[in-house]
Nucleic acid binder design. Sequence first.
DNA 1: TTACAAAGTTAGTATATTCTAACAAATTTG
DNA 2: CAAATTTGTTAGAATATACTAACTTTGTAA
Lengths: 222, 222
Amino acid sequence: MASPTEENYLKALFNLANEQGELSLSDLANQVQVSLPTANSMVKSLRRQNWVHYEKYKPLTLTEEGKAMAISIIRKHRLTEMFLLKMMNFGWEEVHEVAEQVEHIHAPKFFERMDEILGYPSVDPHGSPIPDRHGNLEKQSFQPLTVVLPGQRAKLHALTNSSTAFLAYLNSKALTLGSSIEIISIEQFDQSRVVRYTGHPTETLTEKVCERLLVQLEETSS
Amino acid sequence: MASPTEENYLKALFNLANEQGELSLSDLANQVQVSLPTANSMVKSLRRQNWVHYEKYKPLTLTEEGKAMAISIIRKHRLTEMFLLKMMNFGWEEVHEVAEQVEHIHAPKFFERMDEILGYPSVDPHGSPIPDRHGNLEKQSFQPLTVVLPGQRAKLHALTNSSTAFLAYLNSKALTLGSSIEIISIEQFDQSRVVRYTGHPTETLTEKVCERLLVQLEETSS
DNA sequence: TTACAAAGTTAGTATATTCTAACAAATTTG
DNA sequence: CAAATTTGTTAGAATATACTAACTTTGTAA
Ligand SMILES: [Mn+2]
Ligand SMILES: [Mn+2]
Ligand SMILES: [Mn+2]
Ligand SMILES: [Mn+2]
């Protein structure tokens, strides 16, 4: 049985493997916010439990068992976020912090019931896919808003960051999942985007923000 | 910030203080299911944090702060049990185990929302009172079924044990909170009770079971 | 290809939580 | 009261999780 700490490491490893191919110790240390030696000794302990493959100075891999555990934790996290949003009147900017704790609860029925009550949702409040009960996790192919050219429109489908601060910022701009965003222009100076979207006057978004908005290009029916 | 472990000790201390007046180390060790030296060293650590008053060889007392923390954990536990029962279709025999974990989540809003959604319930699924948001905890004055004499009836209001095994046993006997129980006779041999209750044929309950059933005497309108 | 930087490892330390063994104090009992 | 029992304490050890300091390995860049 993994401790909450170990579970957080497994989740971090899984997410890193998806973003980059390689799993380095320093990325892990960074993600989990611990020192390199701490990550090093934890990885040894995870290896002892057959959750990661690891040899000195070599990159890390999750074992099949480790991967399955990570997916199960991610499932619990995302179901919780959805449950808080839909059934308990939380805002999308509040759910991540609570889910970070609830994901460590060992009670399969608790999460099965959430899933049932929610009607088996496929994505969480930030657009990330929810693994099904069998551990199948849909792969998404959205691109950051930064790849969209002036004159094109794209629909906001997901985010690469679900911190309270970022989501509160999106709230203040009334940007929600599903918004159809048109790029008006890109400032040469700082790469910031002038955009227009569903029922809103012109807005400016910094490049940093655009990088975190995952979109799908829409046919420009001109 | 108390760890889940520390929170379980605080809760145990509070419950012991209510059942007995005195708080002894061995009772604590027993309740939390650890060795005496473990309880001893934990109590020292709780004292460092000003959650208990404690001197070598003297009985223990919770500080005001410790008491408030214990009540808050109990509130979270009981609200969770009620939420699982009413909103997530759990049986009353399943809720305690999950609540034992959920009670350690630090997210006031999560529990406030449960309270709201449930309509501010006053008791949990096992009849124990739920402290309000200000830490007020209603005192109950129910008595164990063992004090009821043959010929008298009493209504089942609460339980002193909410283990899955005990509740599954009550389920099998169709005994629920609210049942009106009449004591037919008491076996001299083993103190077991022959009883009759709401829509049921005669049943026999051992003394051990009767001790755990908290009732209020009903006027015998003969 | 050496030299420097980045990444990873080891050693040593700290706190939290738990144990057993050995001993001491307090309480109960004959 | 003295002996026996119960209760509480200390010492010493183990595991989990974290740190800093010092060192080694690997990879890159001159
Ligand atoms: Mn999240
Ligand atoms: Mn977490
Ligand atoms: Mn309970
Ligand atoms: Mn608990």
